[in-house]
Design a protein around this nucleic acid. Structure first.
Lengths: 252, 252
DNA sequence: CGTTGACTTGACCGTCTTCAAGTTTAGTGG
DNA sequence: CCACTAAACTTGAAGACGGTCAAGTCAACG
């Protein structure tokens, strides 16, 4: 039974999608679930450090992150790198490549990742048959835009200390909401100071000294190749930022 | 005849929409034209310097820029301002406010502007009845995301001179494609150095000195309250950037 | 002809970068 | 378990880039 065996290579059929279990994500109707289930064409799992999507290429795929996390980045010809955002469970990856024909950024895994695979050619079918889901796709694109606006404000107008505080609070908040890290425990994220530097538009050396400053103020701690958040509210206050309340959000 | 007089207050009925005339914008089918025509609820014209949309508010409207241009920006509590992008003819304004419930940025006019007014509550109808148009809306959101990625790369990783070169080339390219300025003539944009500073994440003083440097290199000229582009390719080369070819793009 | 907003300029200072070492940690094979 | 290696993190010193302060000039407008 080939179809059965093909099915069985999937870790998660849509009915048991790990995202549905989380209260921060919205529910599907039966019709939607059936459609998405058929829309899903497989799963992609990649190692930590692997490139998921590459600038300048055209993939036939579109993904939703199921497990793990990674980052989106762009490079200048001489190698300078800017991380523009992070991708976490529930995020749609590669939509730009689908709509604009070609990827304008790359995506790399920060941990082992599991992604749900869709086919870009069938996105129009989704738009035709499930307007509510199409609306959700636009919602996701719009929220990404909103996050980018915030990041731009940060990089353009905040000092190094404020930028770091904002980034850490932002990542911790999203990681909790997406189920990447437990909601109750102290947030901890496996990330390198080089990544932080490339996100904030700072040098590695200065990033290190800035981390040190926030550690002295007992707002965070750096240990074992990762960042531990000690005082989420203190960080947010320092950045002059308030997290918007987490209402159930859509996903595919 | 009230309905007649209501109609006549419009400068542009959709059949004579100034955007349709431009080759950089795609064509509507008859059905789409009819729908959009009914979707349109009015026109909004604002003076130079007026606030079109305000962070934290909820408008019942969604707009497409017909004439003029403006900028999107965010503020920190202490007044520091970051301009995140510019809006030009054909751009959809206020989509975030529609999907995310509340505006997360403000929009201000850089010239007198004329905007086409839609009602946010009817966007779902558009998604249900015209999937192709819904797809276009997502396309627009996706392209905005792409531009923001580029701006973030610029602010985070380019030097002041490179940043300015990139911005000017970027604005000139978009202004021509959107019909804001004539395609043939030397591009000139009425903008203040304070706006440029707030876009690039620089101080006004340093922006001025940077403008001066590019002027010495004969790449641009500042005169009469605006910026004149002398060497678009030289600017793009300096920024390490290449403009993507202009294929017909969607709009509402 | 005085006021206002935009642009200029110079001097000084601080943040952040670069360079050039370190040290610590985690992973690997003996 | 230990030695070896590579990657990540740390630290200090010197200097560049960009910020701040404080005066300007200039053009447009009433």
């Amino acid at each position: 039974m080939p179809s059965e065996s093909a099915r069985s290579t999937r870790k998660y059929p849509c009915e048991r999608c790990p995202l549905h279990r989380r209260k921060s994500f919205r529910d599907f109707s039966d019709g939607e679930l059936a459609f998405v289930s058929a829309f899903k064409r497989g799963e992609l799992s990649v190692d930590k450090g692997a490139t998921v999507l590459s600038e300048g290429t055209k993939t036939p795929h579109l993904y939703t992150v199921l497990e793990g996390w990674g980052f989106r980045y762009k490079l200048l010809p001489d190698g300078r790198r800017q991380i523009v955002n992070y991708v976490m469970p529930g995020d749609l990856v590669g939509l730009q490549g689908t709509l604009l024909d070609e990827m304008h950024h790359s995506v790399e895994a920060l941990s082992p990742m599991l992604l749900c695979v869709f086919e870009r050619d069938r996105l129009m079918t989704l738009y035709r048959e499930h307007p509510e889901l199409a609306y959700d796709v636009t919602w996701l694109a719009s929220r990404e835009e909103c996050v980018l606006d915030d990041n731009l404000l940060s990089v353009g107008r905040r000092s190094a200390v404020e930028r770091l505080a904002y980034l850490v609070a932002f990542l911790a908040g999203r990681a909790k909401a997406s189920g990447l890290i437990p909601e109750k425990a102290r947030p901890a994220m496996a990330i390198t100071q080089q990544h932080v530097a490339d996100t904030l538009g700072l040098s590695l050396v200065h990033t290190n000294k800035t981390v040190r400053k926030l550690a002295e103020r007992k707002l965070l701690r750096w240990r074992g190749g990762g960042c531990e958040v000690l005082d989420e509210e203190g960080l947010a206050a320092l950045a002059g930022w308030e997290k918007d309340e987490a209402r159930p959000r859509p996903f595919l």
